[in-house]
Design a protein around this nucleic acid. Structure first.
Length: 559
RNA sequence: UGGCCUAUGGUGUAACUGGCAACACGUCUGUUUUUGGUACAGAAGAGUCUAGGUUCGAGCCCUAGUAGGCCAACCA
């Protein structure tokens, strides 16, 4: 038995090393810590997949922790949406945690730090404090309040806590090193005063901990062993450890922060702040607009949880700048949908075809396979009649032999039906083709087994019977931005690169079975692409969103 | 003028304690096909940012450059 060694990513290597250097397997614990200030996006999917994937791999618990230390930006709506998205992706968290649950503990620790001379209340304006921080190349200078007595610090901090001081009047700062080459170590702010209701603690607190003070300590409280975050937090690591050393008196397992590169997707943006702008400025309808790279947008667009997880898995984790091409995400969608989506027929740009030798008023129901990739998917019946729609693009009056579709004098197969031959066209006064007249070979019915039905014709077209056709709203989505990296331009803003044609809404004709499509049900409109019933779909008015088109080597060649 | 991080085909990742660069996407060819889809077979495409060094041997180690990124919010 050869053990196939799947290469480990650098995060897994860190864990393997720790395991060899004394960590117990049972001590492993991870967390996914979003701030509830927006919706989760494809970048978070990577982080979710990393943390929960590690949990699965090592059979270790993973907490879902809301990093809710800033009441100004956070809302319950986002908490709910985040939970929904993580669940939909198919992950189970061990505990649902909130940094706000630790406010009292954090406060007590802060008091202890003041007593130990590790923290002090600074009563300067924020501009003043900023100025004293110095610059990356010049050391900072001490605040005049840096050496306040413990008693004074204690009483001021308590006054802050009780809401007796104005917002901005005082902050609590850690006393570290104003000359550190790491700006974050120059006496970072631990608490600010905010007279603002919090979505969970309401008005209980008037002071709120800063990220650096809350995050590592939350990890510690939950006994998280490995705390993974994005690269921009790398300089925070030193502070993370400094705080933990102050708190971790009886030597317990100390959480370890490590950083990985955030994932960027081409032709879109992955920044909650900017995504929020798209919603606010009505560039898109909502956070779950199918053009958004949010988890909820992708879901509504028709991406499956599996395809998103597969995407996250195949791109892996790294530490360098990256822009992943959208085609990779699209591949993951097609790969999954190919195996699972029912094949149906829909005509999006109709051209009327009359089968002249087919009996007037007759109809027949033909058997159609639901999914050639899945034998258990069964079949259904689709109605056929004398008048049908095919795609405009599937007919040309005259064409070269590379054109495998309908043309005068040539035969094509109607999918699941008969072989037809183009005979003549009917044009309007302007010379536009309004009808194509064809004849069919009655013995060529699909699946009939006759010699005629076995004939090889080069092209196969999808179609819809006109008297049975159901009108449907079809939303064709394209990339949201016209350039690969909308937020990389020095002069222009990302919003200037919005693709004006990112949404095209049309009326299409679909086979009658689609009337009953359920919200989020996936289909392959044969020869066109994958579509998903929108949440607004109904019996009277079916609505479909295009997830992604089918791969099309013909388009490429003809261009 | 500082500190830290990163550098491998077009893109994203691999290459275990150094042993003649692999996988996926994308691109291009064919075969099969009642989807110009899928599946299958195959091809092109990097010699690993540069320059030195250590070594029998370097993408991996060392040194110095270069390029990009991060750091001066009472945001996370």
């Amino acid at each position: 038995m050869t053990e196939e060694r799947k290469p480990l990513n650098f995060i897994e290597q860190i864990i393997e090393e720790d395991l060899q250097n004394g960590y117990e397997r049972e001590e492993l614990k991870f967390r996914f810590p979003p701030e509830p200030n927006g919706y989760l996006h494809i970048g978070h999917a990577s982080s979710i997949n990393l943390n929960f994937g590690l949990g699965l791999r090592y059979n270790a618990p993973v907490n879902l922790r809301f990093d809710d230390t800033n009441p100004i930006k956070e809302e319950q709506e986002f908490v709910d949406a985040i939970k929904r998205d993580v669940e939909w992706l198919g992950f189970k968290w061990e505990k649902e945690c909130y940094a706000s649950d630790y406010f009292q503990q954090l406060y007590d620790w802060a008091v202890a730090m003041i007593k130990n001379g590790d923290a002090y209340v600074d009563s300067q304006a924020s501009e003043q404090i900023a100025q004293q921080k110095g610059t990356p190349t010049q050391p900072g200078s001490a605040s005049p309040y840096r050496d306040r007595s413990v008693e004074e610090n204690l009483s001021l901090f308590e006054a802050m806590k009780n809401g007796e001081t104005a917002e901005g009047a005082h902050v609590l700062r850690a006393k570290i090193d104003m000359a550190s080459s790491n700006m974050l170590m120059r006496d970072p702010v631990m608490y600010r005063t905010l007279h603002k209701a919090h979505h969970r603690t309401n008005n209980d607190w008037k002071i709120y901990p800063m990220y650096d003070w809350a995050h590592g300590e939350s990890d510690f409280i939950e006994s998280v062993s490995h705390s993974f975050c994005t690269l921009e937090f790398l300089p925070h690591r030193e502070l993370y450890n400094w705080f933990l050393e102050k708190v971790n008196q009886p030597k317990q397992l100390q959480p370890k922060q490590r950083e990985f590169a955030r994932r960027n997707l081409s032709h879109t943006i992955v920044s909650k702040r900017k995504l929020a702008q798209l919603v606010e400025k009505k560039v898109v309808e909502s956070w779950d607009d199918p053009r958004m790279p949010t988890i909820s947008g992708l879901r509504r667009r028709g991406y499956t949880a599996n395809s998103i997880k597969k995407f996250a898995e195949t791109i892996g984790v790294g530490k360098r700048e990256n822009v992943i091409d959208m085609s990779h995400l699209e591949f993951c969608a097609r790969e999954d949908l190919n195996k699972t989506a029912s094949r149906v027929m829909a005509v999006l740009d109709p051209l009327k075809v009359v089968i002249t030798n087919y009996e007037e008023g007759a109809e027949e129901w033909l058997e159609a396979e639901n999914n050639p990739e899945d034998e258990t998917a069964g079949s259904r019946e689709v109605p056929f009649s004398k008048e049908i729609y095919i795609e405009q693009a599937d007919f040309k009056e005259e064409a070269n032999r590379k054109f495998f579709r309908l043309t005068l004098g040539k035969e094509v197969r109607l999918k699941n039906a008969y072989i037809i031959k183009g005979e003549s066209v009917v044009k309007d006064d302007d010379g536009n083709i309004v009808e194509v007249h064809c004849t069919y070979d009655p013995k060529s019915k699909s699946g009939s087994g006759t010699e005629e039905s076995q004939r090889k014709v080069k092209g196969t077209l999808h179609w819809v019977s006109i008297p049975h056709a159901v009108k449907a709203e079809v939303r064709l989505y394209d990339r949201l931005f016209t350039v690969e990296s909308p937020d990389a331009d020095k002069d222009k803003k990302f919003i200037d690169f919005v693709n004006p044609d990112s949404l095209q809404t049309i009326v299409g004709y679909v086979e009658p079975s689609l009337k009953n499509a359920k919200e989020l049900e996936h289909f392959q409109f044969q020869r066109i692409g994958y579509f998903c019933a929108d949440q607004s779909t109904s019996l009277e008015k079916p609505v479909f969103n295009r997830t992604v088109s089918l791969r099309d080597s013909w388009v490429k060649k003809s261009n």
